[in-house]
Design a protein around this nucleic acid. Sequence first.
DNA 1: AAAAAACCTTGATGTATGTTAAGTAACTAT
DNA 2: ATAGTTACTTAACATACATCAAGGTTTTTT
Lengths: 193, 193
Amino acid sequence: MHETLLKNIASFIELTDEEKEYFLSILRPKKLRKRQYHVQAGDMCRYETYVVKGCLRQYYVDDEGIEHTVSFAIEDWWTSDMYGLITGNPSLTNIEAIEDSELLLIEKNDFDKLVLAVPKFERLFRIKLQRAFVAHQRRIVENMSMPADQRYLNFTEQYPSLEQRLPLKLIASYLGITPESLSRIRRQLVKGK
Amino acid sequence: MHETLLKNIASFIELTDEEKEYFLSILRPKKLRKRQYHVQAGDMCRYETYVVKGCLRQYYVDDEGIEHTVSFAIEDWWTSDMYGLITGNPSLTNIEAIEDSELLLIEKNDFDKLVLAVPKFERLFRIKLQRAFVAHQRRIVENMSMPADQRYLNFTEQYPSLEQRLPLKLIASYLGITPESLSRIRRQLVKGK
DNA sequence: AAAAAACCTTGATGTATGTTAAGTAACTAT
DNA sequence: ATAGTTACTTAACATACATCAAGGTTTTTT
């Protein structure tokens, strides 16, 4: 059960059989239909989410109603509304299924107990957060230093699988440009070939 | 010794006297003169840095030679080249003293031993990384959704102490705009008053 | 199968911010 | 004190990207 998840974890920490079982016991499965919300802005979101299958998108809606994609999550990725999770405040973002999806949730309470009982999990998430830290910094610098066409190329290189399965307008909203601009960028790239 | 640091840590985890002593024993002090590098792009950077006094800036220099400020760190803040630290690769960014500064360093080796010996430290850094995660996401969304003048106002509100002690061109390079633009923005703001 | 959404593209036009250039003021070092 | 950086401002001009509007295509729903 949940072999991929366990294998993923095994690449960071070694677990005994009891620890594995304990961990698996706190996971709560959830299914979403395409376009269904996992979390809505204003909701209390008190769990970490692991994607078994499908694809989620986290996005922020600004005052003008424009959607800004914060992150995507596909198979074997984690996602969460970290803001809501650590502050206890209602979520500021939406998390929505882009495809029919299967998730595993870990409630905050269970998570807190888990890391106290098995510090190796604290370690696992510390390491994952360090990687996210680096990825975030990279994204910030790229947004500041590179024009949109280059950011798009980077995206397609870094996440070729995402490029395939996402509508272009969502990629645009992740890159911080309009769908119209992305369309023109793609036309230029084809011509340049 | 290092009361502020210990108080900071105490707000997250409780330490015994021996644990405190162990922790303090791995800290290595370092002093920097204004404009001196702490880390240079290309260096191996294998430590976490705590700022006792002064102010540091981490920045990336792009192909055109333009500097993009990734982060600032003042008293009681941590900074590091996380990329170099977790990959073992040479640093991609520079960390420079903006004022004469006093630092405390934790070598990666010592850090790794520390968190294994005292899992509470794993917890401390996990929590700090979660906060950084939220701050990073916020910065990404703000850069995408808000015009430069509003981002500048946010910055002055969020970091009033930084606003005071930093030259404007460094703030501009943090906000992702040119010093000329920031100058114009400030003039408009004064007029609007 | 038809209707309705959602998606993508294209063109005309607008705007925030960058670039280049110049000048003044404020530190810093000799 | 003097000369030399470094910081900040202003103006004229350039440009990447947004906005608005429309039409065509694909996908989803009924």
